[in-house]
Design a protein around this nucleic acid. Sequence first.
DNA 1: GTCTATAGAAAGATAGAC
DNA 2: GTCTATCTTTCTATAGAC
Lengths: 209, 209
Amino acid sequence: MQATAANDLVSPDRREEVLAAAAECFMRRGYEATSMDDVADMLGATKGRVYHHFRSKPELFFEVFRRAIFILIREAGVHETGPGTAADRLRRMSRAHILCMMETQAFQRNLTLGVDLYRFGETSDEHRATLEELMDLRRGYEDAFRRTFAAGAADGSMKPLDPSLAMRTLLGAINWVAVWYSPRPGETRAHRETLAEEIVAQVLGGYLA
Amino acid sequence: MQATAANDLVSPDRREEVLAAAAECFMRRGYEATSMDDVADMLGATKGRVYHHFRSKPELFFEVFRRAIFILIREAGVHETGPGTAADRLRRMSRAHILCMMETQAFQRNLTLGVDLYRFGETSDEHRATLEELMDLRRGYEDAFRRTFAAGAADGSMKPLDPSLAMRTLLGAINWVAVWYSPRPGETRAHRETLAEEIVAQVLGGYLA
DNA sequence: GTCTATAGAAAGATAGAC
DNA sequence: GTCTATCTTTCTATAGAC
């Protein structure tokens, strides 16, 4: 169908714009404090446009969340398999994770918010199912770090620490980048990569054998 | 005045109850998602009680925030001065910080929320001044870690790393405890201390000379 | 010091024009 | 596909009884 083909080209981009605006708003003000009007304002539009692409505010948030975790899996998670020792692989995973925190900050900050919603939120059955699915995605991503810590203990490249605890302290340190980082004017990718390397060097030092 | 003396004994406790309930609510649902009715419900009371002790919702939040940072300064910040090398002092500071994250979790989670409010929030002049003051308190606390990293480079007990970056990665790792930690039934102080020691051992490893 | 009742503002969501 | 107008609910905050 030609109409569908056209939509595949045009509609996703418009939808994408709404999504990016929502991520930015959620990051700035938080999920609850962000109104649908805020998202629309950021686009220079009105609510009508937002509601045309997303049924409700929770669904808008879920899409932002899903996007954030997909980016992490694609950019960092993939390095779980690769050459070298477990320590080498963990270094590549951490480096990529940090760059994601810096370059898709608006999306990534929402991962933390999502956890809160999940742990304490009173949501409908439908939304709860979606949250469950999203949390599974996040857990799966975290498992890659857990497994790599275990692999490091096995291949001798890393200290034999509790893999779950190590995963949490490592992810804490590098997730926090999304909290304090803000790009300097004129900053290049090379600057961010240098910064990421420094952080990795500091953080991973404690886990290496 | 006897009335005042009585208030000094009674009123603060009632106020304290409201404060603790607010911290708990803010942690569970976040600041914006928490209504004054939610806080009252947690007390088995109505809004009237909350508004009797706190003029507005922001002021309630500010008090929670202030309490959180005071606890950190009192419990962890004080260890900046003490015996041993800078590494020894940083160990004691981190250990105490982690225990605060576990034992006053409800209060501590709000420190992160406060940062968001400050970075992007559109607040009144009065509230902005208060936020400025609270952020100075937080900055001052962070400076203790920064200074101790610098002292560690000077006395040779720690690697000569960028103190600001090291402070951020360390605090990221140990702040994250408040995000993932949840107390097990029957857990004792001794359990938490053991856990805190493990985390400190893992995290500080990378910074030691 | 706490409650009930309510005013006033803001937000999520929908209907229908264009 | 986007806008205007509006319905409905929810929330902050206050007034006044007890």
